[in-house]
Design a protein around this nucleic acid. Structure first.
Lengths: 370, 370
DNA sequence: TTGTATGCGTTATCAA
DNA sequence: TTGATAACGCATACAA
């Protein structure tokens, strides 16, 4: 490792030219079997590993695809970092008093996307490089990532538009799971709208519910916006009068949803304060928060109120009752991103593509199924 | 994107030499402010993004660290791949009948390691590249990964020893979470032995249990081996006669543990078939499997039998009772790997290092606490 | 403070 | 089937 051997070393050792060494690695069929054997032997003896940098430079492509995520750890500064590992410390024995199970939604989410991307990249002999856009030097980091890859898949809003535009002049960019947008990049959308619509249609058609309310998320969430649109779609299709706005908005967290639920439950007695037959929540955390409070208040789910979510996080599978929801196609998102990148690399001049990922509605007990 | 601009383009546009362009990017303080401004303007106008390959080649280091995992998806062939994304398909509505919650232990495990590595790498301006050693061309893939990075952290047994030796002649290698081994590489161990010992000492000292049995995992698992050693340590320290072997072995899966538990529970009536006061399981899945069966059979945990696990997976937090276990320091593992890589790069001639990561014993209800 | 020139380790194009 | 040799895009030592 003192000084890594190069093609020259291998060539010398094998008594051939560097061109032949390169050929043995890239197009083995173009060299005589004997030569091949000799070269391979030299490679083994020297411990030769080709330099990716040199290859990338000469071949004008690195074989690496990039995946750029937003900062899910909420780290903006080096100071925010958790303590580094302290080595040599002894075992610690602690009483685990419980508390809420850590919600690792974003980790899981991103992990699945990565898994899908890696899988699809592996299929075609690509490597994938992960980048997290965090901290003050994030622009710089994203730039460097872009400089190292043949194509870049970016999770929506992890990179500002202007930076994205800059980068896109060097490598193809695909934006994952963003709001509908009309720019030069390829896009992959998750069909929030169709998913919610299908879910609500189930409530109306199969359960005969006509008194539904939509509990929204943050106003600036494009996902929320699409989901509400799907809600409206379904109601209109069923000839039910649709509201202009969600009946209320939470912040997409379970705690925030609890607060909201408390207020709504408290108003039950007042005129116009009655709970609707079905609460269609904009995400799972919201549904879970409502479930907590409704259960506490003695409101039966789904007997008194039907509850649904969106995302398909694990907790919706273990709650009582399990929550009917719409599963986000995380792995598929990653795979689709890589697919799109590849076809873009194959045909750079094709018009910008838009992919709408299908979604899956999971019927469980909270909507009255079974 | 048709043809990415290079330093030459920027230099020309800015009316300076390529050296100056490079300096503006690498050592801005060495250039006059005006020049800097002009160059930056040119960079923006052209959409210049430096080539990582060229940088790596010229600077003799890529700024990328590699992370190599074993194949957790069990994919050996392209044929094993799940179906690719089908685009344009409509929403699917399915009845989710339940079944076991998907155990994503390895995903979570690896995800956490990655998160730790990425975090630590980010601190020092490094990028990290993930590689999964899978399929027939795995050696090739690992080689390519090694060729692209400045250092490589490898999860134990994801790469055969000879390949690792080959690679190590080019880049520093650190092996994560393997069996004690005496080779040229740096190693990071998770202190399975001390963790189990501390856990068992708790059972003996704090709960006064003297009738304990160890339910092992696969014989070829070094982790299992270490954990059993810790079990023995604790017993011997307490003056309790320690067995030579685990009382039984499961395959580290919940299902396998269930089968085993059924057999053990079935033997209860027979002479010598009585259950011990405490079952120390080699991993969490095993403990969970036993919990399933014991609960079914009306054996109270921890009243009749005390149960403990190892790993700290999420399910141990939601089971009833929650399971006392030892948490694997996944994030720390990733961070430590990167730390070690960095110090190795800083001083290539230092002797091979060995890091023992501390572990945390989580006392919960399954051991009788609270 | 800036420019010139060289080398980094491959791939790929031609010749031989 | 093999060998010279010219890119590839940048960093950097050295000159100016």
């Amino acid at each position: 490792m003192r000084k890594a051997p190069t093609v020259y070393d291998v060539a010398q050792r094998a008594g051939v030219s560097i061109a032949t060494v390169s050929r043995v690695l890239r197009r083995p069929d173009d060299v005589r079997e004997h030569t091949r054997t000799v070269v391979h032997a030299a490679i083994q003896e020297l411990g030769y590993v080709p330099s990716g940098a040199a290859r990338g430079l000469a071949a004008r492509q690195t074989g690496v695809l990039g995946l750029c995520f937003p900062d899910v750890d909420g780290i903006d500064e080096l100071d925010d970092l958790p303590d580094p590992v302290r080595i040599g410390e002894s075992v610690e024995v602690v009483r685990d008093v419980g508390g809420p199970v850590t919600a690792r939604w974003s980790n899981l989410y991103l992990g699945e996307v990565m898994r899908g991307a890696e899988l699809e990249a592996w299929r075609t002999g690509h490597a994938v490089m992960i980048g997290v856009a965090r901290g003050l030097r994030r622009a710089e980091a994203v730039n460097e990532l872009a400089g190292r890859v043949d194509g870049l898949a970016v999770l929506s809003r992890s990179v500002p538009d202007d930076l994205l535009g800059h980068i896109a002049r060097r490598v193809p960019v695909v934006v994952m799971a963003g709001p509908p947008q009309d720019d030069e990049h390829d896009h992959i959308f998750v069909d929030n709208r169709a998913g919610t619509r299908a879910l609500v249609e189930h409530l109306v058609s199969d359960h005969g519910i006509r008194d539904l309310a939509f509990v929204g998320g943050p106003v600036d969430s494009p996902d929320d916006h699409q989901r509400f649109a799907g809600f409206v779609d379904a109601l209109q299709a069923a000839g039910i009068r649709a509201p202009d706005e969600p009946v209320a908005r939470s912040d997409f967290t379970r705690g925030g949803a609890r607060d909201l639920a408390h207020r709504m439950v408290g108003r039950r007695g007042q005129p116009g304060g009655a709970l609707p037959r079905a609460l269609v929540c904009s995400n799972d955390q919201t549904a879970l928060g409502f479930l907590d409070v409704l259960t506490e208040a003695g409101v039966d789910v789904p007997g008194d109120v039907v509850l649904t979510g969106f995302d398909g996080i694990d907790d919706t599978q273990t709650s009582a009752p399990r929550i009917t929801t719409v599963r986000q196609p995380m792995v598929e998102l990653g795979r689709a991103a890589v697919e799109l990148l590849r076809s873009r690399l194959a045909d750079p001049s094709a018009p910008a593509a838009t992919v709408n990922l299908p979604v899956r509605v999971l019927l469980r007990e909270s909507c009255g199924c079974r």
